[in-house]
Every structure is written in C-alpha cells, then in structure tokens.
C-alpha cells in the first residue's frame, strides 16, 4: 500500500515534470501553431543560464528569473529574425528551427563542454510509511499546477492575453481593431520561450544541464501538445498527467523502456481515437 502510494506520488511528479517542460511548447505550438523544433534547446538554454548564474554566486531561487529573462530575450530575437517571416509555412518553420536547434546544441558543446556539474538537489526528504521520497521532485507537482494556473490567468484575465489570442486567431482582424499583431506575436513567442527557460531552470536540480538535454524533452512535449489538440492548456495538462503518469507507473513496475513504450503506444491509440486531439470538441477557451 505504501509502495503503491509512493509510486503514484513519484509518477505524478514525473508527469508534472513533463507538463512543466511542455507548457512553453503549448503556447508556441499549441496556441501559435509554430512548430519550434528548437524548443528543447530553449529548455537547455534555461538550464545553462541558471547554472551559470549560480556559479557566479547568485542564489538558485534568483537564478530562475535570470534564466527566464535570458530565454525570453533570445526567443524574441528568434521570432523577429526567423519565425516572423515563416508564419503559416509549416515545413519552412520546421527546417529553420531544426537548424537553430543544431546550432544551439553545438554552441552549448563549444561553450560548456559535453558534461557539466549538477547543482545538487535540496536535501529535504519525507517518508511515506517505510519509504523515503525526495521533496524537490514532489514539489514539482505544485510548480506545474501554479505554472498552469499562471499561464491560464495571463492569457484569459489580462488585456495582453486577450490581444495575444486575438492576434493569433485572426491576425488581420486583430490589426483592424488596433492590435499591433506582429509585436503581440513576438511577445507571445518570447513568453513561450521564457516558459521553456523556466522549465530548464526549475528542473536543474533533477535534470542536470547537458547540451543534449533538450532531445529528452522535446519529443514527449510535442506528443503531449498533439494529443491535447485545440484547447491547448487544459488539453496539455490532461495529456501530460494522463499519459505521463501512466508511463511512469509502468516504468516503475517494469523498466523505463517499457514506460516509454507505453507512452508512445498510448499516444498512437489516443490519436487514432481523437485524430484532432482529445480536446477537439471541448467548448472552453484554453
């Protein structure tokens, strides 16, 4: 019983980690429709930014906003230089962002080398019956929930959020009521990148910064957003928690390979049942 409880809690925690890594992509791909294959590298950039900041003596908790700022600024530049010219051109966007992904990966290898030190997890543990769990990964459940609620509030309760959705849904009409769609889209893309940076930074104690860390996240993040469908935020949350928890439970009873296998098989099944995503018929905003 205790064992089952610990498995459930730690599986929920890995699902939350998946959700944290996915939410930036939910904004950039789910909401804006930009297939950003460099999303994983934005997570990596966030991780290295936070790592570098802590090495410079900044406390970890303050290194996180630094990472968000760095990835947001870089994301804004990428949108202005590359993405803006390619809206609605799916394959061109994929090619361009794939190139960006390779360049960032190699850039990280050149600057940081292919292995780097972790920063160590805060050593706080708690017990479930006879089992001991590290607190930090469990804390990620709370982080994912707050992050989700925060993005939802930003996009539905603020004027910026309404403008952002209007500019994405019908760009010409958004301009015709006075919204500078181009600038709004730059900001939205930058926020998506900043969320990736936040993910890289907050997960740093669990997932050490390496140049290739992006690859580990990006495939599952994309699948999660695809399973989610048009109601991006709620759909991604459900998909990450459903599929992510399931895969993690399977992984803890069998092997991690079996967990991944379960993840991909479940994705295939869900997409057969809901070709447009699980949220295709939901009548809610996000």
């Amino acid at each position: 019983m205790d064992y089952f409880a610990t498995v459930l809690i730690s599986s929920l925690s890995s699902a939350s980690i998946l959700l944290i890594a996915t939410l930036g992509l939910a904004v950039v791909f789910g909401l804006m429709g930009v297939i950003n294959l460099a999303h994983g590298e934005f997570i990596m950039m966030g991780a290295y930014s936070a790592l570098t900041a802590t090495q410079l003596g900044i406390p970890f908790i303050l290194a996180i906003p630094v990472a968000v700022l760095v990835t947001m600024v870089f994301g804004a530049l990428v949108e202005i230089i590359i993405i803006r010219r390619l809206y609605g051109r799916l394959f061109d966007t994929m090619l361009a962002t794939w190139g960006l992904s390779l360049a960032l990966y190699q850039g990280a290898v050149l600057i940081f080398g292919s292995v780097s030190p972790g920063i160590g997890m805060p050593q706080i543990n708690f017990n479930v019956g006879d089992y001991t769990l590290a607190a930090y990964p469990i804390f990620m459940i709370l982080v994912a929930a707050v992050m989700l609620a925060g993005i939802y509030a930003l996009l539905t309760r603020t004027v910026y959020g309404m403008k952002a959705r209007a500019a994405i849904q019908v760009p010409d009409m958004a301009r015709a009521i006075g919204i500078d769609s181009a600038r709004t889209n730059t900001l939205t893309f930058a926020i998506g990148c900043g969320l990736a940076g936040f993910a890289g930074a907050i997960l740093l104690p669990i997932v050490p910064a390496t140049p290739s860390m992006g690859f580990a996240f990006v495939i599952k993040a994309f699948l999660t957003v695809v399973i989610a469908g048009p109601v991006t935020l709620a759909g991604s949350a459900l998909a990450a928690i459903g599929v992510g928890t399931g895969a993690s439970v399977v992984a803890s009873f069998m092997t991690s390979v079996a967990g991944d296998l379960f993840f991909f098989i479940l994705t295939v099944v869900l997409l057969r049942l809901y070709p447009l995503g699980v949220s295709a018929k939901w009548r809610i905003k996000l």
Binding site: V159, M162, K163, R165, A166, Q169, V170, D172, M173, A174, A176, I177, G178, I179, P230, K285, L286
Partner: peptide
C-alpha cells in the same frame, strides 16, 4: 471595419471579443 465573413475571434467568448477591442483603444472594457 466589419469584414465580409465576420471574422470574429472564434475561440474567445462574446464578451472577450468586445472587451479586447475596447481595451486596445484605451476604453474601459
């Protein structure tokens, strides 16, 4: 401008469609 084919913002509520136009132009939504 009221375009042919309407082009309302489909995944925003009726209230939001109106509020975003007002707020963008500095009016009380």
């Amino acid at each position: 401008y009221v375009p042919q084919g309407r082009f309302v913002f489909p995944r925003m509520s009726v209230i939001e469609n109106i509020a975003v136009a007002a707020a963008t132009n500095g009016k009380n939504a």
